[in-house]
Simulated scan of single mutants.
Amino acid sequence: MADRLTREKRSWNMSHIRSKDTGIEVKVRKFLFSKGYRYRKNDSKLPGKPD
Results as ranks from 00 to 15, higher is better:
residue 21 D to S: 05
residue 47 P to W: 00
residue 32 L to T: 04
residue 3 D to M: 11
residue 9 K to Q: 15
residue 2 A to Q: 11
residue 39 Y to A: 11
residue 41 K to L: 11
residue 32 L to N: 05
residue 26 V to E: 08
residue 48 G to C: 03
residue 6 T to S: 15
residue 42 N to G: 01
residue 31 F to T: 06
residue 30 K to G: 04
residue 32 L to K: 11
residue 36 G to A: 07
residue 17 I to M: 09
residue 10 R to K: 15
residue 47 P to R: 02
residue 51 D to A: 07
residue 18 R to Q: 10
residue 20 K to T: 06
residue 12 W to C: 00
residue 35 K to G: 01
residue 8 E to M: 09
residue 30 K to S: 11
residue 23 G to V: 03
residue 44 S to L: 09
residue 27 K to E: 12
residue 22 T to S: 08
residue 13 N to G: 00
residue 20 K to E: 13
residue 44 S to I: 09
residue 37 Y to S: 05
residue 39 Y to I: 02
residue 18 R to M: 05
residue 40 R to G: 01
residue 29 R to Q: 13
residue 14 M to C: 02
residue 7 R to Y: 08
residue 20 K to H: 09
residue 50 P to I: 00
residue 1 M to D: 12
residue 24 I to R: 07
residue 48 G to E: 01
residue 42 N to F: 10
residue 30 K to V: 03
residue 24 I to T: 08
residue 34 S to E: 13
residue 40 R to K: 14
residue 23 G to R: 08
residue 25 E to A: 10
residue 10 R to Q: 13
residue 46 L to I: 05
residue 3 D to K: 12
residue 9 K to V: 14
residue 25 E to L: 06
residue 17 I to D: 05
residue 42 N to I: 04
residue 51 D to Y: 04
residue 42 N to D: 10
residue 36 G to W: 05
residue 37 Y to H: 14
residue 31 F to P: 00
residue 9 K to A: 15
residue 32 L to S: 03
residue 49 K to W: 10
residue 34 S to D: 14
residue 1 M to L: 08
residue 44 S to T: 11
residue 31 F to G: 03
residue 19 S to C: 07
residue 18 R to L: 02
residue 32 L to G: 04
residue 2 A to E: 14
residue 15 S to Y: 03
residue 47 P to F: 01
residue 21 D to A: 07
residue 33 F to C: 02
residue 4 R to C: 08
residue 35 K to V: 10
residue 25 E to Q: 15
residue 39 Y to E: 05
residue 22 T to A: 04
residue 45 K to F: 10
residue 3 D to S: 14
residue 27 K to W: 08
residue 30 K to T: 10
